[in-house]
C-alpha cells in the first residue's frame, strides 16, 4: 500500500442558506496532498480543516454512518450522483479518481424542486418522509402479530422484497433523473411490501396514496430512462417501477381512488 497523494481542483457549490443564492467556489490550495486512500468525505474533512485554519466557513454536507447504509450522504460529483463508482458518496474513495486521472472535481448538491438546498451541499429530503407517511407501511400495531412462522413466504418473494427494502433513501435516484422523479424510491417501498403476503390487504390503497403524494410534493414523472437505477448504491432495478405501474393500474381499475383520507 503506497501513500500516493493527489493535488485536486475542487469546484464546490456554496450557498449560505436556502434564501441566499449560491455559487461555485474553487479550492486548489486546500485540496493539495490528498491521499488516494481517503474516502471522498475524508477528503472534504481535510479541506474543511484547512478552511477553518484560514477562518473560512467549512463546507456543509450531510453524512452520518459513513459506511454506506444510513443514506444521509449524497453529492453530485462531476455530474454523477454519488460520483463515478456505483456506491454512496461516503464509500467512494479517492483512488477511483486517481485511477481515472481525474483531478478536477465539481461538487453540487442534489437538485430537485422537492429537495430544496438548505446550505452548501445539504438538501431537505422531507418529501421522501411524506411519501412513506402516505402509506409506506403495514398497519399492524404492536402486540397484534401472529407467530412469525404461521405465514410461509416463498424464498424467491422474500428475496425480491428484500431487494426493494434495501433502499437507503439517499435520493440519488431523484438527483440523477432528468425529470427529478421519485419513482424508483416510491416503487422500492411499494414493491417491498407488495411482494409479501402481509402487504396484500393495503396494497391497492398504498399504491394510490403513495403515488398521489409523490406527485403532490413536486417530483417529475418517469420517462423510463433508467438513470436512477444506474446510480442507485443498492442497485434497485427498474422492474420495481414496472411493478408499481402495474399495481397502480390495477388499483385504479379496482378502486378509482383511495378512500382513505
Amino acid at each position: 500500500m503506497s501513500h500516493d497523494t493527489m493535488d485536486l481542483t475542487l469546484h464546490v457549490w456554496r450557498q449560505k442558506s436556502s434564501k441566499d443564492s449560491g455559487g461555485f467556489v474553487t479550492y486548489v490550495e486546500e485540496a493539495r496532498g490528498i491521499s488516494e486512500h481517503m474516502s471522498f468525505l475524508e477528503m472534504l474533512d481535510v479541506v474543511n480543516e484547512k478552511l477553518i485554519e484560514k477562518n473560512e466557513d467549512p463546507i456543509a454536507f450531510d453524512h452520518d454512518c459513513r459506511e454506506g447504509i444510513c443514506g444521509m450522504c449524497g453529492l453530485m460529483i462531476n455530474g454523477i450522483a454519488h460520483g463515478p463508482d456505483q456506491t454512496t458518496t461516503c464509500q467512494l474513495h479517492m483512488r477511483v479518481f486517481k485511477e481515472q486521472g481525474i483531478t478536477d472535481i465539481t461538487i453540487e448538491p442534489w437538485r430537485a424542486k422537492a429537495f430544496p438546498v438548505i446550505k452548501d451541499l445539504v438538501v431537505d429530503r422531507n418529501a421522501f418522509e411524506m411519501i412513506i407517511q402516505a402509506g409506506g407501511y403495514i398497519s399492524v400495531s404492536t402486540g397484534s402479530a401472529p407467530d412469525a412462522n404461521s405465514l410461509p413466504i416463498p424464498k424467491e418473494n422474500a428475496d425480491k422484497a428484500m431487494d426493494g427494502a434495501s433502499c437507503i433513501g439517499c435520493g440519488a435516484c431523484v438527483a440523477a433523473c432528468p425529470n427529478a422523479s421519485a419513482m424508483l424510491f416510491t416503487s422500492a417501498k411499494i414493491g417491498h411490501l407488495g411482494l409479501l403476503p402481509q402487504g396484500q390487504v393495503e396494497r391497492d390503497d398504498r399504491v394510490l396514496r403513495m403515488v398521489n403524494k409523490m406527485d403532490e410534493v413536486g417530483f417529475g414523472g418517469c420517462t423510463n430512462i433508467g438513470e436512477c437505477s444506474a446510480v442507485c448504491p443498492k442497485e434497485i432495478g427498474l422492474e420495481f417501477i414496472a411493478r408499481m405501474n402495474r399495481d397502480l393500474i390495477r388499483a385504479s381499475l379496482a378502486k378509482g381512488d383511495s378512500k382513505k383520507p
Partner: peptide, 22 residues
C-alpha cells in the same frame, strides 16, 4: 419471541429457507 412476530408482521424481509419458513 414476540419481537420476531412483530417484525415479520410489519414486513421485515428476514431470510427464509426454500420451504418458506424463517
Amino acid at each position: 419471541v414476540d419481537i420476531i412476530d412483530q417484525c415479520v408482521a410489519q414486513g421485515v424481509p428476514f431470510a427464509r429457507e426454500y420451504g418458506g419458513l424463517l
